[in-house]
């Protein structure tokens, strides 16, 4: 995966990890989102890309790499849909 296609955080989103969970504040939409443990891991390490994220998750958790990768990509799609991730078209 090239650097251009890696998911990027929306600059309108402020965030902080509190007690292991990422809290995202979408300033323009006025929306708060809280991520679970693996959601937080993905959010904090977006620059790794879905393949490496899935491999790392599968090493530590009871899940196969393909299943983890599918879930990572679905999660990123959900973040894109909610505006937390930039859609990459700009």
């Amino acid at each position: 995966m090239s650097e251009e296609t890696l998911p990027k955080r929306n600059p309108d989103v402020s965030w902080r990890t509190i007690e292991g969970q990422a809290v995202l504040i979408h300033n323009r939409l006025g929306e708060i989102q809280v991520l679970n443990d693996l959601g937080t891991y993905i959010w904090e390490h977006l620059e790794l890309g879905p393949e490496i994220l899935a491999r790392n998750i599968a090493q530590e958790h009871e899940v196969s790499v393909p299943d983890a990768q599918r879930d990572v990509e679905e999660f990123m799609q959900a973040l894109r849909g909610s505006g937390a991730l930039a859609d990459g078209t700009d």
Binding site: E31, Y41, H61, F75
Partner: peptide
């Protein structure tokens, strides 16, 4: 020993109006 797997997810969402 591997940890139990829980899909990555948004667990709370609120619109502030």
């Amino acid at each position: 020993m591997k940890k139990p797997y829980e899909k990555p997810a948004v667990i709370y969402k609120e619109r502030i109006e």
